[in-house]
């Protein structure tokens, strides 16, 4: 039933958005044919939409006010974003403006729009990927967890008996596990988190088992568990960072877009006619 409700809601929202866009397109066409100054109409609509979209960020900072649910606001934000992109296409003669300021403003708008579209995609896919990984870690505590994992790995090595497996596991720890536990994930991994590193380390640990007795094999198994946990942590870190960077990018550019839009409106009104 909830799934049906969601689909119905999305269908209604898409219909409304398409209808609004078609209505706007018709009004613009008619007004253009009447020799009206359509740029004022589309520009005013565009600015209002941008301000309304920006208010979504304000709404999230005022959770105590009875302004409707964040979910509703999010839906309105998404579909109004589509509508705003359409109005922008009606407003500008070229996708990217000609002048320096207008070119910058159009690029900012397009970046905000594209980041919004990406955010829509990310908000639909990344949570699933995050929940698919065991454990939930707050972003700010990821580093603490890394330290705990690294410390635990060091203790495992120190607890190992003197004559058993030290040369093998010690050498492997020094060459492979220590850099893995005590360093941050690479930029490549953050951008595209994959299981290559994890599979390589686990495979190497499995290969060491032939040289180890039972205690050494147990320790190697604990190292493998720590590798899995650390990799899962890095995976969560990479995806959370992506979500957070997107939000920061989208909100900061929105601020620039609002400021630029207001300046543009002022100049357009001043130099019109």
């Amino acid at each position: 039933m909830p799934l049906h409700s969601f689909r119905q809601r999305r269908r209604i929202a898409i219909t409304l958005t398409v209808f609004a866009l078609l209505a706007m397109l018709g009004i613009v066409w008619i007004q253009t044919g009447r020799l009206a100054d359509v740029s004022l109409l589309t520009g005013g609509t565009l600015l209002c939409c941008i301000l309304l979209l920006a208010l979504f960020g304000m709404r999230r900072r005022l959770p105590i006010l009875p302004l409707g649910s964040v979910s509703t606001w999010t839906q309105v934000h998404i579909y109004m974003g589509f509508f705003t992109a359409g109005v922008y296409w009606m407003h500008v003669p070229n996708l990217i403006g000609n002048g320096i300021f207008e070119c910058s403003l159009s690029i900012v708008f397009l970046l905000v729009t594209l980041s919004g579209f990406y955010g829509l995609y990310a908000s639909r896919t990344l949570p699933k990927r995050l929940t698919a990984v065991e454990g939930q870690h707050r972003f700010d505590r990821v580093e603490w967890h890394r330290g705990q994992i690294a410390d635990h790995a060091t203790k495992l090595l120190e607890e190992l008996s003197v004559h058993v497996g030290i040369p093998v596991l010690g050498s492997f720890y020094t060459q492979h596990l220590n850099p893995f536990f005590n360093s941050r994930p690479s930029l490549a991994y953050i951008l595209v988190p994959t299981g290559v590193r994890r599979r390589r380390l686990l495979s190497d640990l499995r290969d060491l088992e032939r040289y180890l007795e039972s205690e050494g094999r147990s320790t190697a198994g604990r190292f493998a568990a720590l590798v899995r946990r650390r990799d899962d942590l890095d995976y969560q870190f990479a995806l959370q960072l992506r979500l957070r960077l997107w939000v920061a990018f989208h909100s900061i550019l929105t601020l620039a877009l609002v400021a630029g839009g207001l300046v543009h409106s002022f100049m357009a009104l001043r130099f019109a006619g």
Binding site: R138, D140, G147
Partner: peptide, 29 residues
């Protein structure tokens, strides 16, 4: 060994998500 069989200490109870600053002590401390 499964990863969930590994027992790690729980995170410290000083979580304040709305703060701009957080403790700079390392995990060992």
């Amino acid at each position: 060994m499964r990863r969930d069989e590994l027992q790690l200490p729980p995170p410290p109870n000083n979580d304040r998500p709305g703060d701009r600053w957080m403790c700079g002590r390392s995990s060992g401390q």
